[in-house]
Amino acid sequence: MISMSDSKDILPNVHFQAQFAALKNQVSPHFLFNSLSVLSSLVRKDPDLSEQFIDHMARVYRYLLEQKDDQLVTLGMELDFARSYAFIQEVRFARKFKVLFQCDESATKRTLLPFTLQLLIENAIRHNRMSASEPLTVTISTRTDGQLVVSNNLQIRTVPDRTIPQGLSSICQRYEMYTDQVVSVEEIADQFQVTVPLLPPNYERAEAF
């Protein structure tokens, strides 16, 4: 019989990396082709905006390629990436969708898992209706106790279901590997709100297994 310590870490790590790879892959196809579709229209209509759009697409994909494994990144880096991602979505869904950034500068050195912001923005889009008369607004802010809060107005679509989606549950699971602090998901009045712990700059991954 092999002792417990021999098998320790191996499988969970494999699982962890695999989950991260799956996460990165799910970003690309729909987002890429929808963005190209918008760009093909924009390029005649508004060359200046097209240039910015291309620049932000390059930033998004560069960040996707740069995150080779699920290592913590600074909030500052995540925010840069999220701003580019949000820019593209705001052009795609002009007048219907908006991301507000209200983070305190002092929090930008704290760390979190890569793609947290993008997955939460995407989650809001996936589960909520949006229109010019009823826009969907995602707000990203930091709290003085070192938590990141991502919220949106609730306008739930009938499909997909309002149960916790794959994106959100994978965020919760990934944080469990890193910290005892929980990712909390709440509905407060007409707001959907996810609170994510921000970790110290030199945070070492907890021995979860």
């Binding site: 929808n34 093909s40 229209s41 209509k45 002009a94």
Partner: peptide
Amino acid sequence: EDEDLTAERLESL
């Protein structure tokens, strides 16, 4: 189509 720009593009094509 829910993306205005994509709808405009389709119309022009």
